[in-house]
């Protein structure tokens, strides 16, 4: 990783390193991939449309990328992130956190959540999206942001617009019918490397 050589008083960061293949599975024991349950065993659910996203992470050969640690981050159905700055926001949903993580043993994952809303906190209408951070063996953390196909707000989303048009479909979570309980299901394939690779974003240089 290279950093600016402009002289500054900033401390040099510790280098990120790979996750390695042996991230302790038990450290995820209390992590849930169901964001519609703020804790286990309660009946209350957050506001909004409950959805299920089935996804996978693949490598340059199209093989599933096993052992990745995945972190998800999204707004509630009103488009509000649960950050400390928003602690007293009237549209914060007390039944929704918006942060999930888990280790995928084989490269597949299922996230149960609510459809994120449109975020307008920063002078820009953000189309509904989910930030995904991937920690893996062989590579430092990579981040991307995933959108929902058929959202009219996608058209003016500043992040999507910054990505070449032909790559935008790679960031789209696709409709995939519904399950037997009538919950809408979606699918997404993350490709870490190669010709069809998912666009990833630089949160150090930008």
């Amino acid at each position: 990783m290279t950093h600016s050589n402009i002289k500054s008083n900033l401390l040099t960061p510790t280098n990120e390193d790979t996750l390695g293949p042996y991230y302790p599975i038990s450290l995820c024991d209390n992590d849930s991939m169901d964001l519609t349950k703020i804790r286990s065993g309660i009946i209350n659910e957050p506001k909004g449309e409950k959805i299920i996203i089935n996804g996978c992470v693949k490598d340059i050969n199209g093989e599933l990328a096993n052992g990745c640690l995945l972190e998800f981050w999204q707004t509630n159905s009103d488009g509000i992130y649960r950050t400390p700055d928003n602690e007293t926001h009237p549209d914060l949903d007390p039944w929704f956190i918006g942060y999930a993580r888990n280790r995928t043993p084989d490269g597949n994952f299922t996230l149960t959540t609510i459809k994120p809303g449109i975020n307008e906190e920063l002078n820009a209408k953000r189309a509904p999206n989910i930030t995904l951070t991937i920690f893996s063996d062989g590579i430092m953390r990579v981040v991307t942001q995933l959108f929902f196909e058929d959202e009219s707000s996608n058209e003016n989303d500043p992040l999507l617009r910054s990505v070449p048009e032909e790559l935008r479909s790679r960031l789209m979570i696709k409709n995939d019918g519904q399950n037997e309980e009538g919950i809408k299901t979606y699918k997404i394939e993350i490709i870490m490397a190669g010709e069809k690779e998912t666009p990833f974003f630089d949160d150090f240089a930008s």
Binding site: D59, D137, L159, V163, M192, T198, F200
Partner: peptide, 16 residues
């Protein structure tokens, strides 16, 4: 080699 993105990372616009 199998998991490192080959494409340069995309910069994030300020508003995002």
């Amino acid at each position: 080699n199998e998991r490192t993105p080959r494409h340069p990372l995309h910069l994030i616009p300020d508003s995002a």
